[in-house]
Amino acid sequence: MKNLSLGVPMIHLPDGKDPYIGHEQEFMDTTPHIQIRLISDPTYLCGVREMVASVARRLGFDDMDCSKISLALDEALCNVIRHGYTKAFDQPIWIGITPLEPNAESPGGIMIVIEDEAKKVDPSKIIGRHLEDIKPGGLGVHIIREVMDSVRYEPRETIGMRLTMTKRVVREENPPRLRDHLPGFVRKADAASKRV
């Protein structure tokens, strides 16, 4: 197990034998590139959302995916505040953000780890409600699982819960080229072929 510092508590990544995530070899670095500690006050969710959306944009996600990633993060934090800390607004939450390395299918991605000191919950009990049941609430887990590629809840070793979620950038089939955006731009080869 690798111990990675994430604020005061430690985050433990699997040593490769644990099949749950299998992403550790994809990290550009084993230490989270961004680490944040905040208190469980909903007022500060806006700042975290904007930060993660900006980072996701730099990692290659389009505008809509950036918004969805920040939505998933927001929902996860709301669940910690609402259910984990039962709306106590002065409790600690740690967020770690790490880029995923490119692979054959994707030019990269993002891994977000959220840790808290709330009560431990059996991960198998963390399920969203059925969407057919139209009623307020209970949508957060469904939204997180719908938006992200992988989602894993687990109890931390000492106290609290850890949520690890990843999402990869979808590689564009035909990415736009420079000349698509420059009126009158002609490749050298195209210009040469027109010369007689």
Binding site: D74, K135, P136, G137, L139, G140
Partner: peptide, 16 residues
């Protein structure tokens, strides 16, 4: 520009 599930729940309750 942004709404989370708490806003959505508020509107579902309003619809009811």
């Amino acid at each position: 520009g942004y709404m989370d599930s708490s806003g959505l729940a508020t509107l579902v309750e309003a619809m009811r």
